[in-house]
Design a protein around this nucleic acid. Structure first.
Lengths: 258, 258
DNA sequence: AGTCGCGAAATTTTCGAAAAAAAGCGTTTT
DNA sequence: AAAACGCTTTTTTTCGAAAATTTCGCGACT
C-alpha cells in the first residue's frame, strides 16, 4: 500500500509533506531542472508571472540563471500541468485565467476534495491526525496575506495553506484522485490571490472548523465544510472581482491577433 | 451506488465560454517535439514499450532519430501524463502497471465518463451526432484486435476506439473534466491490451448500444452502459489476468535491485 | 564469505551555439 | 490608404558535445 510510506514520513519536513505517492507527481527531486520547475511554478501560482504573460527565453534565462534546454524542460512540465501554454514556433506563455475556467475547475474540485477527504477520514491514523494538528498550527500563526504584503509572505502562507490541505487528505487511498485534486488545488491558488485583494473581512475560522470536523471523523460535516469553503471563494470571485477576471480574456485575444 | 446521484447533478451554471478552450491538451502541433511525443505515447499505450522498461537515451535516440534534448522534453511530458517515471540521475522508465492502479483509475473513470457524457448529451448538436455516427462506423469496420495481430492493426483500432469515445463526450462543456477524462482513458488503454489477450469471446455490441443510447439522448441509459463498459473490463482483468497484472510489481523491484 | 573501496565504463544531465522560424520595419505597389 | 514584398532583427527550436553522476567490475581487507 502506498499509504504506508506516507505514514513513515517524518512530520517535520515542511517541503513535500503529502501527495508524494501519487502516480506521477514526483519528477526527480534532486535535479536542477526540478528546482527551476518548482521556482517557476511558485512564480506563476503567486502571480509574479502574470496570466498571459509571454515567457521569452532571453528573460527567463537571466531570471533563473540556467540554460535554454533546462528551461524548456521545466516549461514543458508547466504546460502539462496547465500553468502555461505553448504554440508551435511562438514560444511559451503563462496560462490565462477566466471566470469560466475558475467556475469549471471549482466544480470538479468540490467532487475531488470531498471524495478524497471522505476516504482519508475513513483511513485516518494517528500520524495523519498529528500532521493535521501540526500543519494547522503553522498555518494559524500566519495571518492571511493582504494585497500589499511582500511576495515572500504570500509565498510562505501559500505553502502552509497547501500543506494543511494536503495533510487533510493524506491518507486517502486513491492515488489518482489525490493527483488530480492536487493539480486543481494549485490551479485554484492562482485565483485566490486575486480574490484576496478584494476580500474585505476575511471569513475567520473556516480552517479551524474544518480541522475539528476532520479530527472528529465526521465525514458529512467535513465534506460540507470543504464544499462551502470552495463555493464561497468562487462566488466571492464572481461577484467581487469581475473586472480582473474578465480582463485576461481580452488580453489573450490581443496576444493571438497580433 | 453513488453514481445514480451523480448523474442527476447538473454541472456548473456558467460554462458556455469555457467550452471552446481546453486547458492544456494541445501542446504545439507543428513542432518536431510533438511528433516524438506522440510516437512515444503510442508506443507506450500499445505496450511496444513495456511497463517498467527502462528508457535509455542511447536506444531512444536511435529509435526515434532525434537528439537528447528533444527526447528529454517529450519524456518530460510523458512523466506528467503518468506514462513514464523518472528518478534524479537514473533516467526514465515506462510507468509500471498494477491491478491496484487499474482499479483505482477505473473508479475515477466511471465518474468522469458519466459526468462528461451526461453533459455532452445535454449540449449535443447535429455535428456532434454526425461525428458519433461517423466514428462508430469507422470503428465497426475493424474487428477488435487479437493477440497475434500486428502492432499496426492494434494501433489503428486503438485510434478509432479513442476517436469514438472522444466523439461521445465532445460537446461536454467542462474542459477540466474532459482533460482528466482523456488522461484516464489513455491510461486505461494500456490495460486493455493485456485483457484482450485473454478475452475469449469478445462481448459484442457494447459500442453499438452505447451509440444508440447516446443518439437517443437517453442520459441514464447511456451512463449505465458506459459504467458497465468500464466495470466489466476491470472485473475481467482482475479475474483473468492475475499473473500479468501482478508481475509488474516484481519486475519493478528487480529493476531497482539490479 | 561478505563488504568495502577505487578506477573504468556507461548513462544521464546540463549547456550554449548553430539552424530555423517568426516578428518587425521600411519601401514599393495597387 | 491598404496590401505586398523583401530585408533585418529578434526569438524559438534543435542539436550534439562537455560535465556530472551513477553503475559496474575487480581486488583487497575484515
Amino acid at each position: 500500500m502506498p499509504t504506508a510510506r506516507i505514514l513513515k514520513m517524518p512530520l517535520g519536513t515542511v517541503e513535500r509533506a503529502a501527495a508524494t505517492t501519487a502516480p506521477q507527481d514526483v519528477l526527480s527531486e534532486g535535479a536542477a531542472t526540478f528546482d527551476i520547475l518548482r521556482q517557476m511554478r511558485e512564480d506563476i501560482l503567486c502571480c509574479v508571472l502574470k496570466p498571459d504573460q509571454r515567457l521569452r527565453f532571453g528573460d527567463l534565462r537571466q531570471r533563473y540563471k540556467t540554460s535554454v534546454g533546462t528551461l524548456r524542460e521545466a516549461l514543458s512540465h508547466l504546460v502539462s500541468e496547465g500553468l502555461a501554454r505553448t504554440e508551435a514556433g511562438r514560444g511559451f506563455a503563462v496560462a490565462p485565467i477566466s471566470l469560466a475556467d475558475f467556475l469549471d475547475l471549482s466544480e470538479l474540485r468540490v467532487y475531488l476534495e470531498t471524495r478524497t477527504l471522505a476516504d482519508a477520514i475513513r483511513h485516518g491514523t494517528d500520524a495523519w491526525e498529528a500532521e493535521i494538528v501540526s500543519s494547522y498550527f503553522l498555518l494559524s500563526k500566519l495571518a492571511p496575506p493582504k494585497t500589499d504584503d511582500p511576495v515572500s509572505v504570500k509565498r510562505e502562507w501559500g505553502k502552509r495553506h497547501k500543506r494543511f490541505h494536503d495533510a487533510l487528505v493524506a491518507t486517502c487511498t486513491s492515488p489518482w484522485s489525490l493527483h488530480f485534486r492536487s493539480e486543481l488545488f494549485d490551479q485554484a491558488r492562482r485565483y485566490h490571490w486575486l480574490t484576496m485583494i478584494h476580500a474585505r473581512s476575511r471569513r475567520r475560522n473556516e480552517h479551524l472548523d474544518l480541522r475539528d470536523a476532520v479530527l472528529a471523523r465526521d465525514i458529512d460535516a467535513s465534506c460540507a465544510l470543504i464544499e462551502r469553503h470552495i463555493r464561497t471563494t468562487v462566488e466571492q470571485a464572481a461577484s467581487e472581482v469581475p473586472g480582473l477576471t474578465m480582463e485576461s480574456g481580452r488580453r489573450a485575444r490581443r496576444t493571438r491577433s497580433r
